[in-house]
């Protein structure tokens, strides 16, 4: 039980970042897709830039994990069809609901209970993918 507490605390910090950074705002997502603000690009861009340095330090073994082992970030499945087609479907939903999977849950904490309909849809979508994935191009 104790080993889970730190992940709960990290989740709390994540929820605060998402809320205070206005990353849970439907309007910020719309504004991003209209290219009318730098905010979201700044957040994603600075995270990727700083993240790239971190990943380099992981790869070189300069930063090790709490167990003293090298941190290995697994390579993504190299199949362009799934990345592109799945990505487009995801993007349609991201723009419509104005939230990606993290912010969806943070919005519950913000008292936006109608987001539960979106979450139900997302669970249904995940289920349908699992059910029909053998028939989809990957």
């Amino acid at each position: 039980m104790m080993k889970y507490i730190k992940f709960g605390l990290l989740g709390i910090v994540f929820g605060i970042i998402m809320t205070k950074g206005e990353l849970i705002s439907w309007f910020r997502i719309y504004e991003m897709f209209k290219f009318q603000s730098f905010h979201m690009y700044g957040v994603i861009g600075s995270a990727v830039g700083l993240g790239a340095i971190l990943m380099l330090l992981f790869r070189k073994g300069i930063i090790k994990n709490v167990y003293g082992d090298k941190i290995i970030v697994p390579a993504k499945d190299f199949k362009w069809k799934r990345a592109l087609f799945g990505g487009i479907i995801f993007g349609l939903g991201w723009a419509l609901a104005g939230a990606c999977p993290g912010p969806m849950f943070v919005l519950i904490g913000n008292g936006v209970f109608s987001i539960l309909i979106v979450i139900f849809g997302a669970l249904l979508g995940t289920f349908l993918y699992g059910k029909f994935q053998k028939h989809l191009p990957h």
Binding site: P101, F120, L123, G125, T126, L128
Partner: peptide, 22 residues
């Protein structure tokens, strides 16, 4: 709202990740 969620869930698994993972 259901459609938005459905696309997010289906698309994220098909693509193999979302905003965080990809």
């Amino acid at each position: 709202l259901l459609m938005g969620g459905l696309c997010i869930g289906f698309g994220a698994r098909w693509a193999g990740g979302c905003t965080s993972g990809h």
